[in-house]
Amino acid sequence: MSAQRTEHIINEYLDRVVEQLSDLSPAERAEIRNDLRSHIDEAIGDPVHASEADVRNVLERLGSPQELAQAARERSPESEPSPAPPAQNVERRINGTPGALEVAAIVLTVLFWPIGILLAWISDRWLTRDKVIATVIPVVGTMMLGVVVVGGMIAWGTTATTTLTFAQDRVQPAQPASPGDPGFRSPRQIAESPSAPAAVSRIVAVMSLLVGLLAAPFIAGVYLAIRLKPVEEIIYPDGRRWRGPMTAGGHARPAPPTMG
């Protein structure tokens, strides 16, 4: 199931819980919502690998919004309520809509990949791993192209030299052969007649050109589009912020900054 779908189901549930808690203070509601959210993330693990049934099962085990609201209304008889210390909540914001930067990165990767890839590296919507992969694809494609061009230049140089030597041999032959002889081939014909290896290398050259110039950037662009993550912003109780691509319900992403 997609991360967005998981997110939708979870938020729907949390919204219904909070709705039922309308008689509590906003701070209490926010705290319970946050605590439930942390619990759900821990229970689900990687949302990409969680099926809808898994998610619904976790929510079912948590209980109905009505049950939670009832539990929230009970006061413990043993202790008198005292003024509550302020809730210390980590606030999470998730945004799944790709921004202009991400769209530009994907499109430019296909059209002119060095700029597109650069933009992708600036964006915080891809994992570093995915950025590396997206960079490697067109670089390898270009390297293939480079090898073929250099190889082709060397091969062309060799052919030209051979032809020249051959031509010189023909200009002053010890026993001149006439064009009427059945075995006679002009130097031009020899230089141009395509041998089997030459045909193969021509196909390789064309293929490399296609892969290097067109296919590799296209694949890289498609890869970026697939791997685009919703961005997650975490605001710590002390006001510090962390932003990055959302993964595994926040579990696989790099450790947040050290907290005081």
Binding site: E28, L36, R61, G63, L68, A71, E74
Partner: peptide, 17 residues
């Protein structure tokens, strides 16, 4: 019976010190 009921309870325990 419902795992989620623990969170309102914890919230209350915290408020009660």
């Amino acid at each position: 019976t419902s795992e989620g009921t623990i969170y309102p309870l914890l919230s209350r325990l915290r408020r009660d010190g």
